[in-house]
């Protein structure tokens, strides 16, 4: 079965030395686990001070790697180089990534309009990670992290109905609130969705088309995310949607 992992990162996480991945180790890991395509973002983009610089380094480095690793264009609307980075890399990217919670801005900020307009005109999806790590014990550096406001996410999706929004790594209740709103342009990933019966319940209620596979590697073990789906009583048809078809429709991996 083909798998697209939409929730991958490259780099080292300062707050946990076990969390690190280079392009080389990522390539090895996705091959070992039978992943067809992985959509990756550099972790350094979270704290980077220039959009062009950080994306230049990442897109240049990724040139030497197989097409299995597809780069996401990570943007911070508060930092310089935004327009140039989009102009230069939007066509090469699998999608746009925004770390608004970690970079402390609101998704309704007018600074983001240019990003939404670009996403709309290029039909690029926007991926917004809601969580990355165990926040209950690890937020010393990220003390400012506020609760996810699902209402804000819904408003953003409503304001830009032609843009597909993938909210990656929501907690279970956040995913349920997002999906219960019934928006056509909202999708969620599986990486933080854990509980005995949770995915079955979500799929029963909201359909299989809304769920994309994501591992949150290297924060999480790739194996943990894969086993999560294998252990459920899903039909092959459902698995194909979660693992591949849904992401393939949104991200156009044939690009």
């Amino acid at each position: 079965m083909k798998i697209i992992d939409v929730d991958l990162h490259i780099g080292q996480w300062l707050h946990n030395s076990a969390v690190q991945s280079s392009l080389a180790t990522l390539q090895k890991a996705i091959r070992r686990h039978g992943i067809e395509y992985g959509l990756a973002t550099p972790l350094e983009s979270i704290l980077a001070e220039d959009n062009l610089e950080v994306n230049y380094r990442f897109f240049k480095e990724i040139e030497g790697y197989s097409l299995q690793i597809m780069p996401m264009l990570a943007l911070n609307p508060q930092q310089p180089g935004l327009e140039k980075a989009m102009e230069r890399y939007i066509d090469q990217a699998a999608g746009i990534k925004l770390f608004h919670r970690f970079q402390r801005y609101n998704l309704s900020d007018s600074l983001l309009e240019i990003i939404y307009e670009t996403a709309q005109s290029t039909q690029q999806p926007i991926v917004i990670p809601l969580h990355l790590f165990e926040e209950r014990i690890a937020v010393h550096y990220f003390d400012y992290l506020e609760e996810v406001k699902v209402e804000d996410l819904l408003q953003t999706a409503d304001a830009w109905p032609a843009v597909n929004f993938v909210f990656s790594a929501p907690l279970p209740y956040e995913a349920i609130e997002l999906l219960a709103a019934g928006r056509k342009n909202i999708f969620v990933t599986t990486s933080f969705l854990e509980g005995e019966g949770l995915l079955e319940e979500i799929i029963d209620k909201y359909g299989v088309q809304k769920i994309l596979y994501g591992s949150n590697y290297p924060f999480f073990y790739m194996e943990a995310s894969l086993r999560k789906l294998c252990s459920q009583s899903f039909s092959r048809h459902m698995m194909e949607h979660i693992y591949f078809n849904n992401a393939n429709n949104i991200f156009r991996s044939d690009r």
Binding site: E194, G195, E196, G197, L198, Y221, M222, E223, A224, S225, L226, R227, K228, C230, S231
Partner: peptide
């Protein structure tokens, strides 16, 4: 810590370590 957590995921923490 099932059912709030998944048996499979929590096992994988050990098997993948």
């Amino acid at each position: 810590d099932a059912p709030g957590r998944s048996y499979a995921v929590q096992q994988a923490k050990i098997t993948a370590a």
